[in-house]
């Protein structure tokens, strides 16, 4: 429980979250979200919650990424503002 590790993990976590929201390529957004989950698992393990960290690593970094990737096959890959207005 070193505060420096917590601090920098938290900073990178916030950067990943903002990046996942801002990026226009949805495939890249899924990848960043998976990295976000992995960092979250590291943070949980560092804060002394190995049970939650195991769940987050298995579910957030593996299964959620796969399900979002499969879902991407049915939607357009790029987030396009003009198409959203029509829909």
């Amino acid at each position: 429980m070193t505060w420096e590790i917590d601090f920098w993990l938290m900073i990178i976590l916030i950067m990943f979250a903002v990046l996942a929201l801002e990026v226009k390529d949805l495939l890249a957004a899924v990848g960043i979200l998976t990295g976000y989950s992995f960092l979250m698992a590291l943070l949980f393990a560092e804060l002394g919650a190995p049970d939650v960290a195991l769940t987050e690593a298995a579910l957030g970094a593996a299964i959620t990424g796969i399900f979002l990737l499969v879902t991407l096959r049915f939607v357009s890959r790029r987030e396009d503002p003009e198409e959203e207005e029509d829909a």
């Binding site: 190995p50 049970d51 960290a53 195991l54 769940t55 298995a58 579910l59 593996a62 299964i63 796969i66």
Partner: peptide
């Protein structure tokens, strides 16, 4: 640490 849920998720993965 762990249990049925986490292990089941790994088997599914």
């Amino acid at each position: 640490p762990g249990g049925g849920f986490q292990g089941g998720v790994m088997l599914a993965a």
